[in-house]
């Protein structure tokens, strides 16, 4: 996984609350293999009209936000379904950081596993950021994961990220490789728990 230390660029203000994963990628696109790229499906039904044409007033369709690596939203971003495809759509579109006051738990976990930073900021800071970006679309942002700050002009606001997730993102670590170093512990646990709770093994139906 590609490490994430700093991300600089434009930030797209998506002034919506509870952007659920059905919005991030409608279910009908999830049959496609990942190798085809999921970026085109991002927020598909909000971004496009029924004929598939881009809606010009949707922020992600506007310059300079089309290629913004940062997305700013209101609370409860990524709520709903566990579909990791929601993260694939963001990542394949080129987004590396989503900034919001709260995230759906499963979404945030999926994000980190794909090198996407879910940066938690206060409600007031989110409103400030949305206002700044709406007033000045060209405003450049810097996300610094070492310092856990989001800065523009002379202003810097702190964001929160779980310390384990931060380390994983900074280093590009992969869970499975880490877990493999625990294989002896897992083997020991399996034997002990199987003895304490033998019924965990399903009966022969």
């Amino acid at each position: 996984m590609k490490p994430l230390v700093q991300v600089a660029g434009h930030a797209c203000p998506l002034g919506l609350a509870s952007v659920d994963t059905d919005q991030l990628i409608p279910a009908r696109f999830m049959k496609r293999p990942r190798s085809e790229g999921y970026g085109g499906f991002l927020l598909h039904d909000l971004r496009r009209d029924e004929a598939g044409a881009e809606k010009p007033d949707f922020p992600l369709n506007q310059v300079p936000w089309r290629d913004a690596p940062i997305l700013v939203a209101r609370r409860n971003f990524g709520s709903g379904s566990s579909r990791e495809a929601a993260v694939y759509a963001l990542a394949d579109h080129g987004i590396r950081v989503v900034v919001a006051p709260t995230f759906g738990d499963i979404f945030a976990s999926n994000a980190v596993k794909n090198g996407l930073l879910p940066a938690v900021i206060g409600e007031a800071e989110a409103e400030e950021l949305l206002a700044v970006l709406t007033a000045r679309p060209d405003c450049l942002m810097l996300v610094d994961l070492e310092a856990c700050t989001l800065s523009w002009d002379n202003r810097a606001v702190p964001f929160r990220i779980d310390p384990v997730w931060r380390e994983q993102l900074l280093n590009g670590w992969d869970d499975i490789d880490v877990t493999r170093s625990f294989s002896a512990d897992i083997t020991r646990f399996k034997a002990a728990t199987g003895q304490a709770r033998p019924w965990i093994w399903p009966a022969d139906a």
Binding site: S82, R83, I106, S109, K113, T179, R180, I186, K190
Partner: peptide, 18 residues
Amino acid sequence: FGIGASEVAHVLMTQTLW
């Protein structure tokens, strides 16, 4: 609890989850 695809792969391979 529900998990994402990377976690499904993790459980398939290790029968554990962080």
